Amino acid sequence: MKIRRLDTTDPDELKQWYAACVASTRVEQPTFVPKPFEEQVRQVLEPELGAERYDLVAVEDGAVLGAVMLYLPMEDNRELVWLVVDVAPAHRRRGVGRALVAAAEADISAERRELVVPARLPADRVEDHPYRRFGEAMGYAVATVSTDRVLRWPVDGSLLDRLAVSPDGYRIESFVDGVPQEYRASLGVLKGLIDVDSPTGDIEWEASPVSPEHYAEELRRHVEAGRRLVESVALDGAGEVVAYSEIVVPSVPERHLTQEGTLVRSDHRGHRLGLAVKVANLQALLDLGVTNPSIRTGNDDANRHMIAINEQLGFVPDVAELIFAKRR
Rank of each mutant, 00 (worst) to 15 (best):
D86C: 07
R5F: 01
E213D: 05
T258K: 12
V59F: 09
L160H: 04
V96Y: 01
A216M: 01
E28H: 08
Y140S: 02
L273K: 15
H91D: 00
E260G: 07
Y18G: 05
A51H: 14
S109M: 00
R220Y: 06
H91N: 04
Y18C: 08
E28A: 14
I309L: 05
V290Q: 07
P30N: 13
A164W: 09
L285V: 10
L193P: 00
E136L: 04
A67S: 13
V41G: 09
L285D: 14
G192N: 04
T200D: 08
T262C: 11
D177M: 07
Q40P: 15
S174R: 15
V57A: 05
M1C: 02
A216Q: 08
D287Q: 15
M306L: 07
I203N: 06
G270F: 15
V33W: 15
G289T: 04
P293K: 05
D168H: 08
E217K: 14
E46N: 13
P154Y: 04
L163Y: 12
L100D: 02
Y54H: 13
D300S: 06
D202H: 10
T291W: 01
E13W: 11
S294F: 05
V142D: 03
V252C: 05
G95S: 08
E38S: 07
F315S: 01
V196F: 10
V117L: 09
V179W: 11
